[in-house]
Nucleic acid binder design. Sequence first.
DNA 1: CATGAATGAGAGTTCATTCAT
DNA 2: GATGAATGAACTCTCATTCAT
Lengths: 222, 222, 222, 222
Amino acid sequence: MPKSTFNNLPLEKRERILRVAAELFAQTGYTKTDVALIAREAGVAKGSMYNYFESKDDIYVHVCARALEQSRTAVYGGIDKSWDIYRQIDHIFRKGSAFAMESPEFVLLYLNVSSVGMERFAEALTREVEHYTANHLRNLIRKGMEAGIVRPDINASMTAFFINSMYIVLLLSFVSRHFQIRLLEYLEIEGDMEELDREAILDQLVGMIESMLKPAAPLNDN
Amino acid sequence: MPKSTFNNLPLEKRERILRVAAELFAQTGYTKTDVALIAREAGVAKGSMYNYFESKDDIYVHVCARALEQSRTAVYGGIDKSWDIYRQIDHIFRKGSAFAMESPEFVLLYLNVSSVGMERFAEALTREVEHYTANHLRNLIRKGMEAGIVRPDINASMTAFFINSMYIVLLLSFVSRHFQIRLLEYLEIEGDMEELDREAILDQLVGMIESMLKPAAPLNDN
Amino acid sequence: MPKSTFNNLPLEKRERILRVAAELFAQTGYTKTDVALIAREAGVAKGSMYNYFESKDDIYVHVCARALEQSRTAVYGGIDKSWDIYRQIDHIFRKGSAFAMESPEFVLLYLNVSSVGMERFAEALTREVEHYTANHLRNLIRKGMEAGIVRPDINASMTAFFINSMYIVLLLSFVSRHFQIRLLEYLEIEGDMEELDREAILDQLVGMIESMLKPAAPLNDN
Amino acid sequence: MPKSTFNNLPLEKRERILRVAAELFAQTGYTKTDVALIAREAGVAKGSMYNYFESKDDIYVHVCARALEQSRTAVYGGIDKSWDIYRQIDHIFRKGSAFAMESPEFVLLYLNVSSVGMERFAEALTREVEHYTANHLRNLIRKGMEAGIVRPDINASMTAFFINSMYIVLLLSFVSRHFQIRLLEYLEIEGDMEELDREAILDQLVGMIESMLKPAAPLNDN
DNA sequence: CATGAATGAGAGTTCATTCAT
DNA sequence: GATGAATGAACTCTCATTCAT
């Protein structure tokens, strides 16, 4: 959606603009982010932003589309298709968490896209992002069922929804102040995030999901 | 946090102002909501809003605190403490869903409070809301363990976090456009929300949570 | 079309704003006139202008509607209905010229309304202004015909159009630079407007119109 | 006034640029016309426009000078100098009307040049255009007087001014929305321009001018 | 205490013009 | 000479907050 002018820019400049925009949108939200500030921090003139994009909306859509795409690649890119569902889910949660810690702005952009007042972007942005992960998880579950390593009596769609919902809330809990406080409250931690044992949380969450998926141990194997 | 003048107002007027403000904040988000519009729609003078509250922030905090409080009462108020964890969870999810359908603005306010740019409200609002539900769920789980109806090998805090996370995502899926689209994508529904069978979703989600909590069937019952 | 706020303003302030706006629109045209400048010169805040009017368009429409109305009153207000057509036309041309010299901005606003790019104002402004004068002149001519002091073989509508067209061009020739230069060119005057004998021009123009209207002298009066 | 580079351009390109510029200036007015759009629609680079012309003003002056020149040629070019004043005036009004219908943008440019805010162009543009027609009409009238076919008691300059004023208003009434509405109002037409009988209007106007010019019928010819 | 007019710091967007390639 | 990206001043309109009545 950016103008062709933008795509002709040197890669470095393009990246700089998108990075600055992503950071500002992630930190201050869409409405409070000033196009002039994006321009200034990216070292270009305000007017140039409008050579590159149609409007502030256009900047936002592009920044978010790219951020969501990159988030997916960062997490799903390292998956080996031959891995079974448990190894893949473990990878997704751990890689996702690591990505959230390194690049919190990408997760915050997801949060921002889903906020009140951002509905006009939902059609353009949400469907594509969610489509991929929904399919991926659903298929993993179905294949697991066929392979006999996932309980056959669960609903694949709902279970995929369940797993991804936990994934989202987990990542938000690492980067959004509200979800951080909420997590601390649930874990009865008096201090702040630095006292959090992310690995332990991951172990437990992934464990819970596994125990939800795994068939009951055969009763008659003794 | 509102000024004393606000509390001296007739109840009806107070309610009207808060209701209008809640609706507008929920529909348009904090930044795009105009104090003048709240005043106009509530039938009071713009200046009066500043007799009642310190600032727009102050209005927002009060509106949200009350909305979150009311949401909790609506859902948790009807619980009989003698019910076991399964009945209580069933009640919470079903009552919560019904409440979200009736008063979507309250759920949207929760979404709004947790958004990017609202961090300054998190300390004041988040902790209190989450504290109650975190405690409630954690205790339910612990009591269930003691009563032998909940698996003893799970972590009560994390499981409470898990359950409430699903609860939040479920409610958001009914009221926020982004989460609606996401749900439709996960359930492979081509149309829109009207084709959704909320009851079926609830049955399955609650079922999945139950199966996560319930101890494995005794091995020696044959 | 201004907001009620504007009408509640003290008369003096209202007049000041409209006068300043009229002057600026008349001097610089719609597009180049800056709302902030109108505000500053009228001694009010920029934001206040938007308390008084919906938009710059709204300011313009109101300013012009009022200016056109006042122009009409200034010229047609002094007419005694018992006067015959010749006396009325003489009065209109002379009074109009005097008004144009005193308040050139009003005539310039008429020119501005009729300019390229102002079409969206034409429906709202043009019809009403022209309706009055068209009717007035047409009726004058018809009554003159009945009274036998106007040639019966002319078309009243076209003649009214003819007379008013001359009136407009005459007034513009006194206030618009382009029409001034044009007039000087037609009158073969080397210098500038100060060498113009407005009275002589009026005498001749009115004379020409009279001779166009008057029935031919009776052939048999010898 | 354009730079020499412009004159070195292939004729076709030169014409294309001027035509596009004329159309845009005529449609949107000077201020709202975007140099970039002229360039794009003419198929040249924005920067090239500044190789050809000094400034936007320079483009405008050249476009208008040419348009006014062409208008004159279109109308006056077909005149046979041996025709008497009545035939020439008839030709001018009819040819001018036809030209206005075919190429309304030229008439609109005249309107635009005479608008508020365009004063800085008046010296450069107005004098030359008006000089020609003023001379032409004045001479026609004087020759007509000498030939005894025009009343000797009228002022040639003022009469020329009179005739040309009617000509201008007539043409504007065919192409400018404001003057269209005005004409409809004068002719008491409820609908829009398509219901206008241009030929009838021309017949009447030309007739009125003729009757203004023609000497009274000799009293003693019986 | 209620009112609503006044304020002015922005914020998004446009566009004439320059200039490096 | 041709190109089109870069620039930043200018302009319209918004809105939280103040304050006189």
